[in-house]
């Protein structure tokens, strides 16, 4: 483990940005997790990959950053605790700027690679099927599909917001992928394992690691192929499905009830066949909030 950047802290030992490097030469892959301190699946997935690379070093170089926001991780919070800034809105960073801008600049500097992957968990209030988000076409989409994750979500906006890590990588001319799985503030070992296998398949695709099991992709969609269910009113949402469940039209996805007394005030039913890709995990919901997403399956 190498400390590639450090930053003096007022009341504790200095912040350190840790990098694990496996193998040498090209191609070079950089995988980042824990930009958000409460996204445990991402950290675990990268550490699972590290375990495998220790046993079977790659052909080429793999840089792993399992936990960037160590201070946020210590406190179980998403953002950099000092000034409550989102590290993933501080890119491309500034080596003479604020603390998060300095960390962001260091991360950009030390992820000089052919392919870069930023791994996240879902938000704390939703659970996401392990997925990779990629542009509508091009090499990054090929790389995303090679991961064999359960869901490939093709999205417009190839450059993304340059203040985010993936957007900053793409603006720097690097292939950048955005991977998400599970839910924030919760460790789900099954989803973490799925994410780790996806990362491994990417290395296989690049000729860096031996093949593992077959691809697990069940849906490869754009926005129009995703059915989104939102809360019709404020209330308490009770899901009746889990992410990864296959549903047919009319399948009961969940229901709304009033939080005091529990009277049922509405039901959500699938309008199309597909796989459940997102489920609301925190049941107290405001009107119009996301409850369930169903991705169309072939």
């Amino acid at each position: 483990m190498t400390v590639v950047f450090s930053l003096e802290a007022p009341y504790r030992r200095a912040y350190e940005l840790h990098r694990l490097t496996f193998g040498q030469g090209g191609p070079v892959v950089a995988i980042v997790a824990g930009l958000h301190g409460n996204e445990l699946n991402s950290m675990h997935a990268v550490n699972l990959l590290a375990s495998s690379l220790q046993v079977q070093p790659p052909r080429g170089t793999v840089h792993l950053f399992p936990l960037v926001n160590t201070f946020g991780g210590d406190e179980g919070v998403k953002r950099w605790p000092f000034d409550d800034r989102d590290l993933n809105r501080a890119f491309p960073g500034d080596p003479r700027g604020t603390s998060v801008e300095r960390i962001a600049a260091a991360l950009i500097e030390h992820t000089e690679a052919d392919v870069c992957v930023d791994v996240h968990s879902g938000a704390p209030h939703v659970r996401e099927l392990p997925q990779v988000r990629a542009p509508l076409s091009g090499r990054e989409l090929d790389l995303a599909r090679a991961m064999g994750l359960p869901l490939v979500w093709r999205r417009a906006g190839e450059q993304l917001d340059g203040t985010g890590l993936v957007g900053a990588w793409r603006r720097a001319g690097r292939a950048g992928l955005h991977v998400v799985g599970g839910r924030g503030i919760t460790l789900d070992t099954e989803h973490s394992g799925t994410l780790a296998r996806g990362l491994h398949r990417l290395l296989t695709h690049l000729g860096m690691s031996p093949a593992i099991g077959p691809a697990e992709t069940v849906a490869d969609v754009t926005r129009v192929e995703i059915e989104t269910h939102r809360a019709p009113c404020g209330g308490f949402f009770v899901p009746e499905v889990r992410v990864g469940a296959r549903v047919k039209p009319g399948h009961l996805l969940g229901y709304m009830q009033i939080p005091i007394g529990g009277d049922r005030i509405g039901e959500l039913r699938a309008g199309r066949a597909g796989v459940v890709m997102t489920v609301r995990a925190w049941p107290m919901v405001h009107a119009e909030e996301l409850l369930v997403r169903v991705a169309a399956t072939p």
Binding site: E8, A9, G97, T98, S99, E101
Partner: peptide, 8 residues
Amino acid sequence: PVVFPGTV
């Protein structure tokens, strides 16, 4: 008063 390097 708490500051990191780079704090305005």
